Amino acid sequence: MARGRKVNSNGEKSKQLLREKAIELFSTNGYYQTKISDIVKAAQVTQPTFYLYFESKDSLFNDLHQQFQQDLFNILDEQFDQQDIQFLKVVENLLQYFIANPMLTKIGLYQSEESYLVKDKLVKKFEEILEGQARNYPNQQHNDIQVVSQSLLGSILRLTNAFLLTNQKSAKELAEDLFSIYFKKEPALVTS
């Protein structure tokens, strides 16, 4: 007799349910404290059903991290294609994704061993955007773009955790705060 999913059951629904429950458990308990048995219990499926879709807990976790990465860079690539989009809007949309996917964000930015790759890619993307839009940010022209991009990412990571994921600030508010810090227009020199 075949093990796993029942005949005529909805496989995609089971897989999606496993992913959703895994996101909840990983983001709440962490990778090491979450067991496959916890995930299948929360999803109300059998362990053989789990193994129909995922090789291991590690492969599921990596799958979630890949989803986060793909979603994130789809947002950035989509916006980067628009030449006139302001960097403020890029950051705001990035933060909106974080707030719409708080548990996946915790996994992708903070818990995954490969989160450093996402952070490196974000820095590179920030550098590309800032280089392409340098004329829009005259007060940053004397700064090293790599330093600005690294600093901005560090601020985004810290403030996302402190204010965004705790619902203390909206994506728009946080993006505006970041911009007032990093890209504030320099006051015009007054000559007498």
Results as ranks from 00 to 15, higher is better:
Lys57Gly: 11
Ile129Ser: 09
Lys106Val: 00
Phe163Tyr: 09
Glu128Thr: 15
Val7Cys: 08
Gln44Ala: 15
Gln47Thr: 15
Lys106Cys: 11
Ser155Leu: 01
Ser37Cys: 02
Gln69Val: 14
Gln44His: 10
Leu174Arg: 02
Ser192Gln: 08
Ile181Asp: 04
Gln86Cys: 12
Leu159Phe: 09
Asp81Gln: 13
Ser56Asp: 04
Ala162Glu: 11
Leu104Asp: 09
Thr46Pro: 08
Gln69Lys: 14
Phe61His: 07
Leu130Gly: 01
Asn136Ser: 14
Leu152Asp: 00
Leu153Lys: 08
Gly4Tyr: 03
Glu20Arg: 09
Leu165His: 10
Ala134Asn: 03
Phe61Trp: 04
Ser27Cys: 04
Phe73Gln: 06
Gln16Asp: 10
Val7Lys: 10
Leu76Ser: 02
Ala2Lys: 10
Ser59Thr: 06
Asn161His: 14
Ser151Lys: 00
Phe87Leu: 08
Gln133Pro: 02
Gly108His: 06
Val7Arg: 12
Glu173Leu: 01
Lys21Ile: 10
Phe126Cys: 07
Arg5Gly: 12
Glu173Trp: 04
Glu113Ser: 11
Asp77Gly: 13
Leu25Tyr: 03
Asp77Glu: 14
Thr46Met: 12
Glu127Ala: 15
Pro187Trp: 08
Asn167Trp: 02
Asn29Val: 05
Ala42Asn: 12
Val45Glu: 13
Leu25Thr: 03
Gln16Ser: 15
Gln150Val: 07
Ile181Pro: 00
Ser14Val: 11
Phe163Gly: 01
Val148Tyr: 03
Leu153Asp: 00
Arg158Glu: 12
Phe163Lys: 07
Lys13Tyr: 13
Ser149Arg: 01
Tyr182Ser: 03
Leu178Pro: 01
Gln79Leu: 11
Glu12Met: 13
Ser56Gln: 06
Phe50Gln: 13
Leu52Trp: 05
Asp81Val: 11
Asn62Asp: 15
Thr49Tyr: 05
Pro102His: 03
Tyr116Trp: 02
Glu20Gly: 14
Ser56Phe: 01
Tyr53Ala: 13
Phe68Tyr: 12
Lys172Gln: 12
Ser149Gly: 09
Val40Met: 04
Asp84Thr: 13
Leu109Gly: 03
Gln150Lys: 04
Leu109Thr: 14
Tyr97Lys: 05
Leu153Ala: 03
Lys124Met: 07
Tyr53Asp: 06
Gly108Thr: 01
Tyr97Glu: 14
Ser155Met: 04
Leu157Ala: 02
Glu114Ser: 05
Ile99Val: 14
Gln141Ala: 00
Phe87His: 02
Leu152Ala: 00
Gln66Lys: 12
Leu76Glu: 08
Ile85Arg: 03
Lys185Ser: 14
Leu94Gln: 05
Ser180Trp: 08
Ile156Val: 09
Phe179Val: 03
Gln47Tyr: 12
Ser27Ala: 14
Ala100Thr: 06
Gln66Gly: 06
Gly108Ile: 08
Lys185Asp: 02
Asn10Phe: 09
Arg158Tyr: 10
Tyr182Ala: 02
Gln16Gly: 08
Ser112Arg: 05
Asp81Ser: 02
Leu64Cys: 10
Lys13Met: 05
Pro187Gly: 14
Glu24Gly: 10
Asn139Gly: 15
Val40Leu: 05
Glu114Phe: 13
Gln83Cys: 04
Pro102Gln: 06
Asp63Gln: 13
Lys13Pro: 08
Pro48Asn: 00
Glu186Cys: 05
Ser27Leu: 02
Lys169Met: 12
Leu152Lys: 01
Ile39Tyr: 09
Leu17His: 10
Ser37Ala: 15
Ile36Met: 04
Arg135Phe: 07
